[in-house]
Amino acid sequence: MTSHSLGMLMAAHAAVAEFLAGLPLPLRPELTLDEWLAGLGEEELAELGLDGEQLADHVARLMGRKKSVASAPRNLVLRGGHDRHGQPEVAELVLRPGQTTCIVGPTGSGKSRLLADIECLAQGDTPTGRVVLVDGAPPSPQARFAPECKLVAQLSQNMNFVVDLPVAEFVAMHAQVRGVTEVEAVTARVIACANDLTGEKFAPDTALTQLSGGQTRALMIADVALLSESPVVLIDEIENAGVDRSRALGLLVAGDKIVLVATHDPLLALRGDRRVVLRGGGIAEILETSAAERRALQRLERVDAGLMELRDRLRHGGRIEEDLPSWS
């Protein structure tokens, strides 16, 4: 490390380049790190909040850092605990990449707790006593409590973009952080996918904070599907009228994610592979989606498409005066 110039270090290690370029100090790419540090005044270092030794250690750690890739598990197994009354719940739930599991139950039935148990990879140490196994084994404390990157991405109705940047610029930033090589192409793909999910298209130079609720949700889903580092996606209530929900789910599943959705929307719930029914804080039942339900889903999708068309007509100033089809 000492024999290479700063310029060479920066060319070889993107994280080092990003870190050094962000420092409020003049860079001298032709010098080695030690030479550069030796030439810095005490005052300059003080401004940095690091002394010379700490800075050298910092750079060494950035160089040694492995690219953060959450190794995608082949399955997650949730072993049941107990409900609020101490009654044991349904024994086992197996989650695999490319599968969608929906979670249903009235308010207060424990949907969020179930998502939280999966998120923290519970080991019998949460109020429900559930245990989550990754590839058949309990995760190491390190993997659980000090992970380099999270196994689980979350998406909920409360989430918003708060960063004040144009869409394309921010998506490109996320792509860079993820170590994507073709940043521009991937950025364009994420935006195209998001636009595919929403009725009203947005341009790459639209500010993130100006996006409508539906556009925001669509972009979050496309980004999670195509760019998120986490192999598991938890979605809490994604019932926004501005998003094509079945396509959204398709996009996530195609990305080989393990998808869990808390929802009471029949279009989403019947599209899942199974439904976990919660009652009194515990899993009461696991229903595989039946063939009859898949047929019902097809009809529901036609109803939904009809409603979409009407919504679109209203948006463009049209009237709804014809005899409507009997969708039921």
Binding site: R61, R65, S68, F145, M159, H174
Partner: peptide, 27 residues
Amino acid sequence: GDIVSQAEREVFAFNLRLANPRAATVF
């Protein structure tokens, strides 16, 4: 972290690792 996007959380976590590669990060 519950009120911003997953993407912002991931970029933020990355920037934290740049600022402090020694520390563990917990949301």
